[in-house]
Design a protein around this nucleic acid. Structure first.
Length: 547
RNA sequence: GGGCCCGUAGCCUAGCUAGGAUAAGGCGGCAGCCUCCUAAGCUGCAGAUCGCGGGUUCAAAUCCCGCCGGGCCCGCCA
C-alpha cells in the first residue's frame, strides 16, 4: 500500500528516489526544493511553494494533503489510504505483503565444510541466507537454495584420515567427525610426515579409487547428517546439496580447463595457473597442483559454469574472508564470458577471546547455542509459572534467529553469552509477545460474541494512525531488503510494528462498549496480528498465539 | 607492507549507497504505571566531542583526503 502512495508522490514530483524520504514530520517528505534552489540560486522555501502550487495532488488516489515547511515538501495520506490498508490486510490475510517481482534465483548459503558441526559463524550465514530466500519467495521470485558441499578438499581428507585412524564415536555424527578432525590435526602438527597420507587420500579420491571414495562419502555424509539436523531445528532447509566432487566426475572441471585454454588464460610451469595481474589482482590463481589434483576454485568455477547454464540469477552468501577469493572467481568467470555471482558478504562472528577455528576445536556450535538458549527460555517461563516446552523452543529459536538477522551483515559480530541469553526487548520475543497479545484480544472478542471488524478512518487517533501507517509499509520494506540484499532492514521494520502496536495497546482499550470504536479497533488489532505473523514467518520465526 | 570491512552515550544497534528539519531505538542506571483486553508491556529522567584531524558546502554522522584503533584477506587451504 505504501508503495502505491510512494509511487504517486514520485510521479507527481517527477524526481529520483534519492529526494524522497520517510520523515517524522510527514508520511513522505522531499528535499528536491533544496536541489532546485541551489541550481537556480533561489530560496528553497520559495521554490518549494512554487512547486506545490503547480502540482495537482487532488487528482491522486491516496495523497490527502501537502505542506511546505522550511523548504521541505511534506505529503500526507488521505483517509481512503488508511481504510484501504486495513481492508486489504484483512482481505489478503496470509498473502498480505506479497509482491510479484517475478523471475527466479538460486541462493547458495551455509555451505560449511563437512568436517564438524556448524558453529555460530556458519549460523550467521545460514540465517541470513534462509531469511533472504524466504523474502524473495514472498516477493514472487522463484527461489532454489543450494548447500555446496566441499567433499574433496584437504580438510576433508584430513578428517577422513582421522576417521580411518581412530574411528567415530557414537554421538551426534557431526560432532563425532569434529573430534577426529581436531585430533588428526594435532597429530599432523606433531608428525608432519602424516601430510603425505593426506595427499595420497586426496589423489586417490580425485582418481576415483573405490575404497577411498567410500570413506570420503561416509565421513562427509556423517557430518552432513548432523548439520542437517541442526539446521532443521532452526527451520532452515535446502532444496539441494551439491557435491563439489560431482563436477570433477561429470566433466565440468574439464570443460573449465578447455575454456581457459581456448582463451589463452592457462599458464603451466610446475602447476597450472591463471595470472590476473592485468586486472589488478596480484595473486596468481592456481588451478591444478603438480600432482594433477584440482583446487577449490577449479571446482567452484565448474559449479558456476553449471549455475550459468541453469539460472539467470544466482546469489552466494559468503563470509568476508572470501572476498579476495570471490574477486578472483568473478574475474575468471568474466574472462570466460560467464556471469559472475551476486555476493552477499557478512563479516566474521568471533568470540571475545578471538576468532573461531573448527580445526583447533575452538568454536561455539549452533547446537550448544540453541541448547543454552532453550534452557534460559525454560527458566524464564518457569518464573512466569509456565512449563510449556514448545513455547520455550519457539522463543529460543526466535531469539537466535532475530539476533543474527537484525544486525547489518557488514558489521563484525562478537559473540557474547550474556547478550545472547538476554530476552529483554529488541528481540524476537518482543514481537512474538505483541502477536500473542493481539491474538488474546481477538480471542476475548470472539468469546464475548462481539468480534465484528469495521475500520473507520473518521475516528482514528494519532497512535492508531501511526500503527496503520507502519502496517502499510510491509512490502515497501520487503522490497528494500531484497534490493539491498539486507534482510536486517526488514527485521528492523517488524520490530517497529510491534513497537507501534504496544504504544497503541497501552493507550487504547479495544474491547469497549461503544460498538463503533470497538469494531474499528478490532479491525486494527486483527490487521496488526496478520502483519506480525506474516513478518515473523519471513524471518523464519514462529508466532505463538499464547505465551 | 598491500587490499577490503567496521568505529555513533557504560554496552548493543539504526541512520551513511542518494548531504538538509531537535542524531533514533534497545540494554544497563534512576523515578514511576497492573481492582481494566497478557507488565516478555508502557511513561519520565540521566547519559553522544557521531574514533581523531583537515577539506568541500548555505548545510556533513552522511561526500573527499590524511591519521588512529579493531577485524578479515594476501596458501599448490577452503
Amino acid at each position: 500500500m505504501f508503495r502505491t502512495f510512494y509511487r504517486e508522490v514520485k510521479k507527481l514530483l517527477n524526481c529520483e528516489d534519492r529526494y524522497i524520504r520517510e520523515s517524522e514530520f510527514a508520511d513522505l517528505s522531499t528535499t528536491i526544493a533544496f536541489k532546485i534552489a541551489k541550481e537556480k540560486k533561489e530560496n528553497p522555501q520559495k521554490v518549494a511553494e512554487e512547486l506545490v502550487s503547480e502540482i495537482e495532488f487532488e487528482r491522486s488516489t491516496y495523497i490527502g494533503s501537502v505542506e511546505v515547511v522550511n523548504g521541505y515538501i511534506n505529503f500526507f495520506v488521505n483517509e481512503e489510504f488508511l481504510s484501504d490498508t486495513v481492508e486489504r490486510i484483512l482481505d489478503e490475510d496470509e498473502n498480505y505483503g506479497s509482491l510479484n517481482l517475478g523471475g527466479e534465483v538460486l541462493i547458495e548459503h551455509t555451505s560449511a565444510n563437512p568436517d564438524g558441526p556448524i558453529h555460530i559463524g556458519h549460523l550467521r550465514n545460514a540465517i541470513i541466507g534462509d531469511t533472504l530466500a524466504r523474502m524473495m519467495e514472498k516477493a514472487g521470485i522463484k527461489v532454489t537454495t543450494h548447500y555446496y558441499v566441499n567433499d574433496m578438499g584437504r580438510q576433508i581428507a584430513a578428517a577422513v584420515l582421522g576417521y580411518l585412524k581412530y574411528g567415530l564415536r557414537e554421538t551426534k555424527p557431526d560432532h563425532a567427525v569434529a573430534e577426529v578432525y581436531v585430533k588428526i590435526n594435532k597429530d599432523i602438527e606433531e608428525h608432519p610426515e602424516l601430510e603425505k597420507e593426506v595427499d595420497e587420500l586426496m589423489l586417490k579420491f580425485e582418481e576415483g579409487d573405490e575404497e577411498v571414495s567410500k570413506s570420503f562419502k561416509f565421513v562427509v555424509d556423517k557430518a552432513l547428517e548432523g548439520i542437517r539436523e541442526t539446521l532443521a531445528k532452526f527451520d532452515i532447509h535446502h532444496d539441494d546439496f551439491i557435491y563439489e566432487s560431482d563436477f570433477v566426475r561429470n566433466g565440468y572441471v574439464e570443460r573449465i580447463f578447455k575454456m581457459l585454454e581456448e582463451k589463452g588464460l592457462l599458464e603451466k610451469d610446475d602447476v597450472w595457473k591463471v595470472d590476473l595481474k592485468d586486472y589488478g589482482i596480484e595473486k596468481e590463481v592456481i588451478m591444478r597442483r603438480e600432482n594433477g589434483t584440482t583446487l577449490y576454485i577449479t571446482r567452484d568455477l565448474a559449479y558456476h559454469l553449471w549455475k550459468n547454464e541453469n539460472f539467470r540469477r544466482f546469489i552466494n552468501v559468503l563470509g568476508a574472508d572470501h572476498k579476495l577469493y570471490s574477486e578472483q572467481l568473478s574475474k575468471i568467470l568474466e574472462l570466460l564470458d560467464l556471469k559472475p555471482p551476486e555476493v552477499l558478504f557478512f563479516e566474521f562472528v568471533s568470540l571475545p577471546e578471538g576468532s573461531m577455528s573448527t580445526r583447533k576445536g575452538k568454536f561455539v556450535s549452533a547446537d550448544e547455542l540453541l541448547e543454552k538458549t532453550f534452557e534460559e527460555a525454560k527458566r524464564i517461563l518457569r518464573e512466569r509459572g509456565s512449563v510449556d516446552e514448545k513455547i520455550a523452543k519457539v522463543v529460543a529459536v526466535g531469539a537466535i534467529r532475530y539476533d543474527f538477522v537484525r544486525v547489518s551483515p557488514e558489521k563484525p559480530f562478537t559473540f557474547d553469552w550474556s547478550k545472547a541469553l538476554d530476552f529483554e526487548r529488541q528481540t524476537a520475543s518482543y514481537i512474538q509477545y505483541s502477536h500473542a497479545r493481539s491474538c488474546s484480544i481477538l480471542r476475548k472478542a470472539v468469546e464475548s460474541g462481539k468480534a465484528e471488524l469495521e475500520f473507520d478512518p473518521a475516528i482514528i487517533t494519532n497512535k492508531e494512525r501511526e500503527l496503520v501507517m507502519r502496517l502499510s509499509k510491509f512490502s515497501f520494506y520487503l522490497e528494500k531488503a531484497i534490493n539491498e540484499l539486507k534482510p536486517s532492514i526488514f527485521a528492523e521494520y517488524l520490530m517497529s510494528v510491534a513497537n507501534a502496536f504496544n504504544d497503541f495497546y497501552t493507550d487504547h482499550q479495544v474491547l469497549v462498549d461503544d460498538k463503533k470504536v470497538r469494531m474499528h479497533r478490532l479491525a486494527i488489532v486483527d490487521a496488526t496480528r496478520i502483519v506480525l505473523r506474516n513478518g515473523l514467518e519471513l524471518l523464519g520465526i514462529e508466532a505463538p498465539e499464547r505465551m
